Amino acid sequence: MKNCQIKDENNEVRPCAEQINNLGMILNSLPSVDEFQTMANVFKAISDPTRLKILHLLAEGELCVCEIIYVLEKPQSTISHHLNILKNAGFIKWRKEGVWIHYRLSDDKLIEEINVMIETVQG
């Protein structure tokens, strides 16, 4: 390995050991496995079309769960499942009023940030 050489981003020849050392430092600066799992869970939460619809509906303001069920024409159990995933990921907040539960976005800029992310990856 001491004779191994590679070209870097500037087309300069560098020893492999130096590159491996640099990669080791980069690896040590990355988030932890738990932090990556949390990030993955957040992305999973918005990876479903129904959940994205719910977020877009809530971007217009707070809604009762019964309104979300009616608009999306899905069973209560399905909507509750999706709302629970969004709530656990931190995308939405809820409050109880009598027998009804009302949902709202946890951050008013959430849809804007999701759209920016989508535009970024689509180029």
Rank of each mutant, 00 (worst) to 15 (best):
L72W: 04
T78V: 12
L57S: 05
R104A: 14
I92K: 00
H56M: 08
V116R: 14
N28E: 14
E9T: 15
Q122N: 15
R51A: 00
C64H: 09
E12S: 11
T38C: 04
K7G: 01
N10R: 15
I46W: 01
M25T: 13
E119V: 13
I79W: 01
I46S: 07
V121A: 05
K109M: 09
G90H: 05
V42T: 15
P31G: 05
E67W: 02
K53E: 06
D48L: 11
N22K: 10
T120Y: 15
S80F: 08
D8Q: 04
V71Q: 13
I79L: 04
P75T: 07
G24N: 11
L110A: 05
S106C: 03
I68F: 04
K87L: 08
W100V: 13
E73P: 00
C4F: 11
L63F: 06
A59L: 04
W94A: 15
E97T: 10
I79S: 00
N11A: 09
E119W: 15
V116C: 06
C64R: 08
C16N: 05
L58A: 03
F36C: 11
E73K: 12
K87W: 02
N41R: 10
N28P: 00
E60H: 12
I92W: 01
H82W: 04
I101D: 04
L57K: 11
T78E: 08
L86I: 06
I111F: 00
H81K: 12
C16I: 02
D8V: 03
D108I: 15
E60L: 08
G90K: 03
D107G: 02
K74H: 11
V99T: 13
E62L: 01
S29A: 05
E35Q: 14
I54P: 00
H82Y: 08
N11G: 07
T120Q: 12
L23Q: 06
E73V: 02
G61Q: 02
L23G: 07
V116M: 09
C64K: 15
G90Q: 02
I118V: 13
I54K: 06
S80D: 09
I118W: 09
G90A: 00
V13L: 09
L83S: 03
I118D: 08
Q76L: 11
M1T: 07
Q19F: 09
Y103L: 01
A17T: 08
P49L: 10
S32P: 04
